[in-house]
Nucleic acid binder design. Structure first.
Lengths: 171, 171
DNA sequence: TTTTTTGAATACCGTACATTATTCATGTTA
DNA sequence: TAACATGAATAATGTACGGTATTCAAAAAA
């Protein structure tokens, strides 16, 4: 006893899948499968970003006409393979907004120019300071009255490891 | 004229692929394929993290025995679907390490308890302040002498939008 | 002996395909 | 007529498969 028969509008509708859109198989290294699934599940960690144009009232997060979409990783990291993180200790750079315990995003591929905040190893000790170069001399300048400037001389073992691009300050 | 013949140790060695490890096909929504490929290519945006235990000399980034591996997204975002970003304007929270132009990571799923730094809309104007609740009263407290505290009364249109979890300060 | 050539062996990779899930017009039943 | 059951139609999904890339031991050549 047959039912149904040829007709239109039958079949599973589009966009009913797990993601509401078509998918394609992509090969993923086994060690990253879990994080890729996380990543996809979170829609790529793309967050709504309310910029400084928001003045006349705060839009609902549901409104998407005024917001940008930002992936923090891409926003903070320009050169992934040259980037690392360091936890800052001490208050010598408090004037630059770097507090003890903050996480610093450091890019090794940027040139440490005068005026940049840099990570340096001074006699094997890690430190964050502002680089100052003038009259052929180089200094590591703190931004806190209580700390001394460090003159970079050939008698000291100083390596500059990278330029600080962002400070992440937990609240 | 035949060459070769049956033998052992023939064939392409393992781990010679693009990623140096086995892969599996995973279905990805088309709109995310590009970012997933980026993500995989950058090894999941996993950065070396040199914690505060690094004291007796700064290890080379090649040394991986002392470093942790951190994905900034996972480090900064606990509840992806409830998280958004706002750019802070003004200096009213300078004492909490929030500078004009900083990007604030805000979690809407956290309860705005007294003492937390929160994002609020006051009469439609977006603001960041520390929430203070005592004696049944609620206040929005700046951390800058030049700004007044705001008393939350029923006559004002105040909505708390979320709790600030991290401050991202570009250098 | 040393160097070069060859092709068997085996991993890599993209995607076609078979399976599963879902919906709804039609047929059946009350 | 209204409610229900059926199965045709079609999208979604995971994986098997065929083609490609790569290496190396053996055979051939020098």
């Amino acid at each position: 006893m047959p039912h149904g028969g040829a007709r239109k509008n039958a079949g599973r509708p589009k966009g009913q899948g797990k993601f509401g859109e078509p998918t394609k198989p992509v090969r993923i290294p086994t060690s990253l499968i879990a994080s890729v699934i996380d990543f996809v599940h979170e829609n790529g960690y793309i967050l709504p970003f309310y910029g400084h144009k928001v003045q006349a009232g705060f839009p609902s997060p549901a409104d998407d006409y005024i917001q940008e979409k930002i992936d923090l990783n891409k926003h903070l990291i320009k050169n992934p393979s040259a980037t690392f993180l360091v936890r800052a200790m001490g208050d010598s750079m408090i004037g630059a907004g770097i507090h003890s315990g903050d996480v610093l995003v450091v890019d090794r591929s940027l040139e440490p120019k005068s005026g940049k905040i840099i990570i340096a190893a001074v006699d094997g000790q890690l430190t964050v300071k502002r680089l100052l170069q003038k009259n052929g001399q180089s200094w590591l300048m703190p931004e806190n009255q209580d700390f001394p400037a460090i003159h970079i001389s050939s008698t000291q073992d100083i390596h500059i490891w990278g330029v600080v691009t962002n400070v992440i300050h937990p609240v």
